[in-house]
Design a protein around this nucleic acid. Structure first.
Lengths: 164, 164
DNA sequence: CAGAAAACCATACTCATTATGAATATGGAT
DNA sequence: ATCCATATTCATAATGAGTATGGTTTTCTG
């Protein structure tokens, strides 16, 4: 009932806030102007921007950030789990604020990238089937599937005392 | 029966020869010294070498090749379908002479890369299951699966007249 | 075996990303 | 509110993978 109390609660309950400062506070990251601008810019985008695209977008929106700072902040945000980083088809890093489990589909002709809902992928009975299941998502034609597994090799598991 | 004829047949029947010169001839590629050395070096390796590793290996084995030539030949061999190129976990290109359909598994601790037999992957009933199916291959622990689909986006399909 | 085409190679260049280090801003403690 | 240790910012330099150039050499076809 007391507005001040409500406001106070909100300000400290970062996890329930979708605004940028709150997200940063929730991850124990200093909410600097540059960092807020970077995160806000990516959250506002529906794409998978490269560093250069983010840089330009920030400049155009009146909150320019140096390229060094941009790289540093992207690394910090990825480390904090607020962004995902992945390599585009040309090997250039791209950033993704969709933290849900999902995969990507890349157009072999124009390079366009779209998210593939994990459920759609899980639904397929096998990887082979994924390839046959053309238009997997929104009119895309699937021609190939590349799977990369990540894990611990036998040597590292042994060295870590089976603890991996 | 005529030795000369036999030899002649062998020399032109490149597809049935596993040696380097034959593989090149089979793909209509000139069998230059540099190209033979590059292909032989990769075929002899059981790993997934980077350009730098191939370069060093060639130098040490007494058949040095300039870095420019190495890049050119790797591109030619990939284009001819004699090698596969893929990006390692650090984004650096790696080359693979295993032409069978297969995927890769990368150790998150040491970076070691191994092939994952397509059959093993296909056998799993879903991608989700692949993650649970720990030790998927030879003692590896699988912690994550990244799937990248390649194909044609709706716009490009339309532009190409549904032909893709 | 001649000669056009392909390949070789040294080197210059591009471009994404990382490193450096001095100046500045942040946020918890006083 | 002010202090101040520390994190952050930023210009710029450095790194490193990969590509482009162009003159010389090799290959292979006729």
């Amino acid at each position: 009932m007391k507005p001040a109390e409500r406001k106070g609660v909100r300000m400290h309950d970062a996890r329930n806030r979708s605004d940028v400062a709150g997200l940063l506070a929730g991850r124990r990251l200093r909410a600097t102007a540059a960092r807020r601008a970077v995160l806000a810019s990516i959250l506002a985008s529906r794409k998978h921007p490269t560093v250069d695209e983010i840089f330009e977008r920030l400049r155009r929106s009146g909150t320019p950030v140096s390229i060094a700072t941009l790289y540093q902040n992207l690394a910090a945000l990825v480390a904090a789990g607020l962004l995902r980083r992945f390599a585009g088809p040309d090997g250039v890093a791209r950033y993704d604020h969709n933290l849900e489990a999902h995969h990507h589909i890349v157009c072999e002709r124009c390079g366009r990238i779209a998210d593939v809902n994990m459920q759609a992928a899980e639904g397929a009975q096998s990887i082979m089937e994924l390839r046959r299941q053309r238009p997997l998502a929104g009119g895309w034609l699937v021609r190939a599937v590349e799977v990369e597994f990540r894990g611990a090799c036998p040597q590292c598991r042994r060295r870590a005392g089976q603890r991996p």
